[in-house]
Nucleic acid binder design. Sequence first.
RNA 1: GCCCCAGUAGCCCAAUGGCAGAGGCAGCAGACUUAAAAUCUGCAAAGUGUCGGUUCGAGUCCGACCUGGGGUACCA
Length: 840
Amino acid sequence: MTEKAGYVSVQSQTEENSDEGVYSFAAMEARWPAVWEDLNVFAPLDDGSKERRYVLDMFPYPSGDLHMGHAEAFAMGDVVSRYWRQLGYDVLHPIGWDSFGLPAENAAIKRNAHPSEWTYANIDTQAESFKRYAISVDWSRRLQTSDPEYYRWTQWLFKRFYERGLAYRKDSPVNWCPKDQTVLANEQVVNGACERCGTIVTKKSLNQWYFKITDYADRLLDDMDALQGNWPDRVLAMQRNWIGRSEGAHVKFTVEAAAAQPEMELTVFSTRPDTVFGATFFVVAADAPLVLELVAPEHAEALSEYREQVKALSDIERQATDREKTGVFTGRYAVNPLTGDRLPIWAADYVLADYGTGAVMGVPGHDQRDLDFARAFDLPVRAVVDTGQEDPAVTGVATGGEGTMINSGPLNGLAKAEAVPAAIKLLEDKGAGEKFVNFRLRDWLLSRQRFWGTPIPIIHCADCGEVPVPDDQLPVRLPDNLRGEALSPKGTSPLAAAGDWVNVSCPTCGGAARRDTDTMDTFVDSSWYFLRFVSPQYTEGPFDPAKVNDWMPVGQYVGGVEHAILHLLYARFFTKVIHDMGMLEATEPFSRLLNQGQVLNGGKAMSKSLGNGVDLGQQLDRYGVDAVRLTMVFAGPPEDDVDWADVSPSGSAKFLARAWRLGRDVDSAAGTDPATGDAALRSITHRTVHEAKALLEGHKFNVVIAKLMELVNATRKAIDTGAGAADPAVREAAEAVAVLLSLFAPYTAEDMWNALGHPASVANAGFPTVDQALLVQQSVTAVVQVKGKVRDRLEVSPDITEEELRELALASEAVQKTLDGAGIRTVIVRAPKLVNIVPA
RNA sequence: GCCCCAGUAGCCCAAUGGCAGAGGCAGCAGACUUAAAAUCUGCAAAGUGUCGGUUCGAGUCCGACCUGGGGUACCA
């Protein structure tokens, strides 16, 4: 597909030929994994003898074997992990599986099997592939969220949330996916469709479990300041948008009593309380239960018809912003608290039931939506801010900008910045309002009507109500006798069908009771797994309190930007709650976040329907693990997408072979003192190591590899046409290559290290130390510019003084010729690199 | 509409405000070969999306715009 004949050299290799001096990835891949396993290279000491660092890749979902996307993500995380190890930190780098979820269930239905069969078979496959891929993880810490010993603690945490009032049930219209037959969280609805299967989501009124994440809205927002610079800006921006803090005021309107209907009070949220004098009507969300209570009897039928129309619309249709405004009059009036005006109350679908209070004051002069509505129904328009623009009533364009208050009684003459607080003061004085901060964030709907998830540890008793399952009875295990069809979605949880599982006695009164049959959203499982990794076998709690603060927070988290809101927001929420429970010092889970890009093919995401997928296994067979890893990392900055059609794994393989050959060509004994070696090569080696360190800190992995290529080329040259293979500087260079290469190409690096006469593993070799003296160059090229244009170059000592360089530059023949007798206005000297002469 | 990010040789990408090129891919020429592949050596190739500004000096900083990508959107 992208390769021509070039791959042949690295293809069809046998294990034997590595002894003949031929680079054979197959031989290396056969040789080293067992050695690494014996040495237990990647298990942290966890004894406090070294500073600890925690690096984590977002754990995978076990959908079949690993794919190109995993290969990229895990290559990136492994660079950080291996780099930190070389620097001498005690590194925790674990792996596990996010193994609950729908695909396993769907596969089980199809095959008349249990979801665990498919799940654990896939996990085994992926684990083998990860081992081949040589990720530097501690395999003894492996975990699966579908293991009872894991979800036991998910349930335990749920109970603690419940006790704190952070997990509760309520009736509410919820997002419903008709295909998957389950409810969805707001975060899982994308453009009105199910995030997973793309089916248009409908609304259903149901009693569901929620986490009260809205209690943490402020902290989730404010604590992002500390992440600034350490998380990608766009992720922070997306979370800020999602939380959607907006400052304004609550304004109370009195609804006039009507025949047989009592007086009521209605509150609206407005970001423009300064425009209260401009309110000429009042709108309530048509689908809010409130309107039914409000509507006058003679308007009830029209309202009912309108509500039916609204209900028939999908979210997508309803959210189209260019729709005509629709609505019906309710027959009731609200009194403007500041003007005393009677405002007709309308029901309309442009007001959303679940934002703010589900009602707005209509200020058509200064809000485009309100103006569109007013024009559609002939409602009056009153401008209360003079913005210098034309009258909105005439133009149909609402004036939203700054201006001076008019037609607003005591507010007249004020600018917006003064008018907003002044209006709030007026409202407060009348008891008709107050400053208010509104959030867009909704509570997290966590229950799902599916089988393959963590059971909610609650028992429903007719007498005692909701009764949590006692801690000593956790985990509430999933029944293992449901198979195939019994798992198919019916709109209620399949667990309800497991009679002997559902019917239990109430833990409190001992009477007949039923288990809650919903399971938790799988995002609950993944909201705390990073904590479990610090002590995955701990049996007294979700994690060992004596260990957790040694490792948390995660120093580097790596994963795709598709989790910018969902997983990352939920994990942050869990971390804060667990902190508040006194179990964790950290208030944020991940101090640094790296979003690796996607792997594309020909500019498009790989997909079955496009038929442009690239099989990871085939790439590994063809080019070797190291070449694929190197290609992923070398392709560009980690955040950028990698287009597999634009890169060259065979080029990577070629480079690896070149580097590897250095190790075999070195003709000096291990341990030889490099001090007497070729100075020029030593200087290059030390500069490369020095630069590599800075680049690695900045995640510029692709540039590190480019520098490594230079070092390899320079060493090759030294061997062939310079100092020769026996020069100690050549050994020093080759060893530096091996250690740096170990971050990207562990097999090749290990083999080189071995050829250089060192015992395994190169992963523990330690980052090469830099001799500062060797970074200083003998001479540097100073550029002499006249008016910004280069006119001469001078070879000068790196410690030349400004004055000396200035004299040299002015004496330059080329400069004199360019100046041609003209006087000099200024001379800028940046010793030792540059002089810029500005003529008069 | 609003908010982010990115535009540098044919392509992927580098360049603390200081010589536009580090590296790779593709290309061309040469060496080796009976020949080819592989390997090695060398060469060529853009003035940095556009316009303006700041500066002695701008790919880099500022402003506007264009293009592409992503996010978000009757959010009151």
